[in-house]
């Protein structure tokens, strides 16, 4: 291993971007990790839920009817927000890898945040009948 423990624990601090003078780059990085870890956790739960199909169609439907109750529809909106942020910031990172817009990283971070909020809002609006159905 060419990297020692010291150089590997690089992210202990909050980091100020030299172009924007803000900490948005650090937050973009932190939120990418937070949503990434959360999505991995969700992935294993998701696979476990789908595997109830092995116990038969009735078992699967019983579980899925519970998981489509209003409380879980609201949780799904948080899931959508996490997926959207992770995907949008992933595109932001891909642009930097291609050498594009590195100096505008702060602006791109806020665009990611805005799009995450707007698209989650639209998804939430269309999910309202599921949240308030009797």
């Amino acid at each position: 291993m060419a990297f020692s423990f010291r150089t590997l624990s690089l992210h202990a601090g909050n980091f100020q971007d030299r172009y924007s003078g803000t900490r948005s780059g650090w937050w973009a990085w932190f939120l990418q990790r937070l949503t990434g870890v959360a999505l991995v956790g969700y992935l294993f739960l998701h696979i476990a839920v789908i595997s109830t199909a092995r116990a038969g169609a009735d078992t699967f439907d019983t579980v899925l009817i519970i998981l489509q109750k209003p409380f879980f529809v609201v949780l799904d909106l948080f899931l959508i927000a996490a997926v959207l942020y992770h995907a949008l910031n992933g595109v932001r990172v891909l642009l930097f890898d291609a050498g594009i817009a590195i100096k505008r990283q702060a602006l791109l971070f806020w665009i990611c945040m805005l799009l995450t909020i707007v698209i989650t809002g639209v998804a939430g609006y269309f999910s309202l009948p599921l949240i308030f159905r009797g």
């Binding site: 690089l10 992210h11 909050n14 980091f15 100020q16 650090w26």
Partner: peptide, 13 residues
């Protein structure tokens, strides 16, 4: 205060 890894550092790690 430390920075998130650059693209080059990520590839190296």
């Amino acid at each position: 205060m430390s920075a998130p890894l650059t693209s080059q550092q990520q590839k190296a790690v």
